[in-house]
Design a binder for these strands. Structure first.
Length: 278
DNA sequence: AGGGAAACCCGAACGC
DNA sequence: TGCGTTCGGGTTTCCC
């Protein structure tokens, strides 16, 4: 399964360090600094610092939108939310204004969690299972089938877009990816999920997978003030394209609000199915 | 059960 | 130029 850009970034940054740049897995945390305590979801700061120092990083992975650093006795779980970022930099690099957490290792590098908007969160958990248990299936997991997706859509009576973004229904879809996937599948965000047929569900899953893979391939999207080096924003078809012409049919793209979220559609390509909003 | 609203944040964009 | 206002990203929590 392809990894999130951040996971790749951590690996790549260290691999490119050459002989002195092994991957973080295998390293020990020698020091931890918290610059904004509220970034810690659990536990308290003192406990966090006492517990984390000395532990070896075993594996770096991800689940849904969470980054999961498996330590010896805990999992260090990070969620970047929207403006969070992770940097791996040479030890002694000058601190950035929005740094929230810094980890030093028994190697001349440090990992920094930075987040201007302060939405990102950090967990130190002995057992992350309860967190994972709240998440739905991974759309990029090949064992997740079209039929399963169809049945899950069928058993709900929900507006399509909020449902797709519901992390307990399907894990990993954000606002941008959802708008782009719905456009690709030619489905309306307000469409009642239970009204999709097998073909439409299959098309939607394909679109979701393509959009996610595209985003990963392009290192994510850098929008507005948040520049993380990604270029997915250059391939948007509808997101933030309100007022522009639809690349398929030329119709002016509209912006509406669905589930409190800015939502972008081509009103011609994305029609409600007959009775689709019942 | 589903949907709406508010809260958490603050840099940027907008309006005057 | 400067000031006030609005916006929006992901998630949780509360309310109808």
């Amino acid at each position: 399964m392809p990894e999130l850009p951040e996971v790749e970034t951590i690996r790549r940054a260290l691999q490119e360090g050459g002989r002195e740049g092994p991957a973080i897995p295998g390293w020990h945390i020698t020091e931890a600094d918290i610059y904004w305590a509220k970034a810690l979801a659990v536990p308290d700061e003192t406990t966090f610092l006492r517990e984390i120092v000395g532990q070896q990083v075993r594996v770096i992975a991800r689940r849904a939108k969470f980054l999961d650093l498996e330590l010896e006795r805990h999992h260090l779980v990070l969620h970047l939310r929207m403006s969070g970022d992770i940097r791996v930099q040479p030890l002694g690099t000058e601190a950035h204004k929005h740094d929230r957490l810094r980890l030093s290792f028994d190697h001349p590098y440090e990992l920094v969690f930075s987040d201007p908007r302060k939405f990102g969160r950090i967990w130190l958990l002995s057992d992350p299972a309860p967190l994972w248990d709240r998440l739905g299936p991974e759309p990029l997991d090949e064992s997740f089938t079209e039929e399963e997706f169809y049945l899950r859509l069928k058993q709900r009576q929900r507006q399509l877009k909020p449902l797709l973004m519901d992390q307990s229904f399907l894990a990993g879809m954000g606002n941008i990816y959802t708008d782009e996937a719905l456009f690709q599948a030619r489905l309306h965000p307000l469409q009642n999920s239970a009204k999709l047929n097998r073909q439409q569900a299959a098309d939607l899953l394909s679109a979701i997978r393509e959009q996610l893979l595209q985003g990963i391939a392009r290192n994510g999207a850098s929008i507005d003030w948040v520049y993380r080096g990604g270029s997915f924003q250059n391939s948007f078809n509808v997101y933030a394209k309100n007022g522009k012409n639809c690349p398929n049919c030329g119709t002016v793209i509209e912006k509406l609000v669905v589930g409190q979220r800015g939502t972008h559609i081509c009103p011609n390509c994305q029609r409600m199915l007959p009775g689709g909003d019942d």
